[in-house]
């Protein structure tokens, strides 16, 4: 029976349903709130943010632009207006500070679609699927920029589902539903966590942007880990966990430094032992239990 339990079941039993979902709920709130700010103009006539995720103007003063799109534009040979460059710099600095892929897990609309696919896979116990290589996204990122400079246009934006879906939500869906269905089914039946964790060049771009971000999750109480594997099961990028969680014998820091970590906080939610929490990148474990455990392992 326990094999059929969903990841996080133990945490729900220990901490209660709310605390076992607090980061998820917070994340969904932020995603929907940002979307709501964009939608309040066209739907209610209250113009707080104009534009869409690609580039926007907040309260008619603050320009924000997506640095990935601006990079594509630069590779395509265009010299953008200063407004766009300022906007892109502001956004890049923001994501450097809070974690590059915070974009993916806290803002991007595709995240909700692919999370649903991942959740359904777990519910329906779908184990099969095409395992893509996680580095593929960097190749696609390189391709999108090289193709931009060859063709002299922002080629990736012809199909970029992230910007297309966001724009669709705000400016009219058209054929966007097909794209959403395609991504949903791709992640559900073809490749587990296929899009966001393996292919999306935008995610790759933000991984690089937040390579040295100061905000990271740490396995601060890693000695309490009972190997329930829930964090691996829930994490969209589980390869980032072991160096921090299981790195004590090698004297590795408990900070998750893998740049693919999206700072989504789901590992914090699902851990019944409260091993993880948000820390700074420079967090140093000072507790003696760590060293104790280390010596224990060594002996």
């Amino acid at each position: 029976m326990s094999a059929l339990l969903q990841p996080g079941a133990e945490a729900i039993a220990h901490k209660g349903r709310l605390r076992a979902h607090q980061w998820l709920l917070l994340r969904r709130s932020v995603q929907l709130a940002v979307l709501g700010l964009f939608l309040s103009g066209p739907l209610l006539g209250v113009w707080i943010i104009k534009g869409n995720i690609a580039s926007s103007l907040t309260l008619d003063t603050l320009p924000l632009s997506d640095p990935f799109l601006v990079t594509q534009s630069l590779f395509a040979g265009h010299r953008p207006e200063t407004t766009l460059l300022i906007g892109a710099a502001l956004v890049a600095v923001f994501y450097f500070l809070v974690g590059g892929r915070v974009y993916c897990s806290w803002i991007c609309p595709i995240n909700m679609i692919t999370d649903l696919s991942a959740w359904l896979r777990q519910r329906l116990h779908i184990k099969s699927g095409l395992r893509l290589q996680r580095e593929t996204r960097y190749w696609l990122l390189a391709m999108s920029l090289i193709a931009a400079s060859i063709s002299g246009s922002m080629v990736w934006e012809l199909i970029n589902p992230v910007t297309t879906v966001y724009r669709g939500l705000i400016f009219g869906m058209g054929g966007v539903w097909l794209l959403i269905m395609g991504l949903f089914l791709f992640d559900l039946f073809i490749s587990p966590r296929g899009w966001c964790s393996h292919l999306c060049p935008m995610g790759a771009f933000y991984s690089l942007a937040g390579r040295f971000t100061p905000v990271r999750i740490s396995a601060v109480k890693r000695e309490q880990c009972n190997d329930c594997m829930d964090c691996y099961a829930i994490c969209p990028e589980p390869q980032v966990i072991p160096p921090a969680l299981k790195g004590a014998p090698q004297g590795r820091s408990p900070v998750i430094t893998g740049s693919n970590c999206t700072n989504c906080g789901r590992c914090i939610d699902v851990c019944s032992k409260e091993v993880f929490r948000f820390t700074s990148r420079f967090y140093k474990s000072t507790d003696s239990s760590n060293t104790f455990k280390q010596s224990e392992v060594l002996s």
Partner: peptide, 17 residues
């Protein structure tokens, strides 16, 4: 058109205004 497709970030601010 060619330069436009290199420059436009498809934000829709022109549409809004």
């Amino acid at each position: 058109e060619q330069d436009f497709l290199a420059a436009c970030v498809r934000c829709g601010l022109c549409v809004r205004d």
